[in-house]
């Protein structure tokens, strides 16, 4: 199962990972890009916070539309690409202990009878290496394949 692994002492807080993440997900975010990796801070020291693609993911249990699923092969937890569609109910945002799911605030979606979406890390399925990993100049973020 793939997971991101962080060495925070290497992080300079440049936020290139956030930018790369926004850029990678432009097609989902439409007019307002959002990042799925968050460079937070503790006493002015940068600390990135990422999705863990949990084994017993609470966001999956909380999802009332059934769109948030954990892929049994890759281990990736995502609400995109399934038959069930995200309806923007935000239960996953309430459930995620790491606070790494955010709402798209596309007002147009509310009016066009489609739904705002919960945005989260999908480990960039179109790429071999996630965009944040490639973008980091300091090798803070590493993609590891681990046994769950």
């Amino acid at each position: 199962m793939k997971k991101l692994y962080l060495r925070i002492e290497r992080c300079s807080g440049c936020k290139r990972c956030e930018l790369a993440c926004m850029d990678e997900h432009r097609d989902i975010d439409a007019d307002k890009p959002r990042t799925r990796i968050f460079v937070e801070s503790i006493n002015e020291r940068p600390v990135p916070v990422v999705c863990r693609h949990c084994k017993d993911a609470l966001c999956v249990s909380a999802c009332m539309a059934g769109c948030m699923q954990k892929d049994q092969n890759s281990g990736i937890v995502s609400n995109q690409g399934y038959l069930q569609k995200c309806v923007g109910c935000w239960m996953c945002i309430m459930a995620c202990p790491y606070g790494v799911i955010s709402p798209s605030d596309n007002g147009a979606m509310v009016d066009n009878a489609s739904f705002a979406q919960a945005l989260k890390c999908d480990l960039c399925p179109k790429k071999d290496t996630p965009a944040c990993v490639s973008a980091c100049p300091n090798e803070v973020i590493e993609l590891r394949d681990i046994q769950e």
Binding site: L58, C92, M94, A95, C96, P97, Y98, G99, P103
Partner: peptide, 9 residues
């Protein structure tokens, strides 16, 4: 509602 889940945890 950003980070609401963190507070909930």
């Amino acid at each position: 509602i950003l980070k609401a889940g963190f507070y909930a945890a």
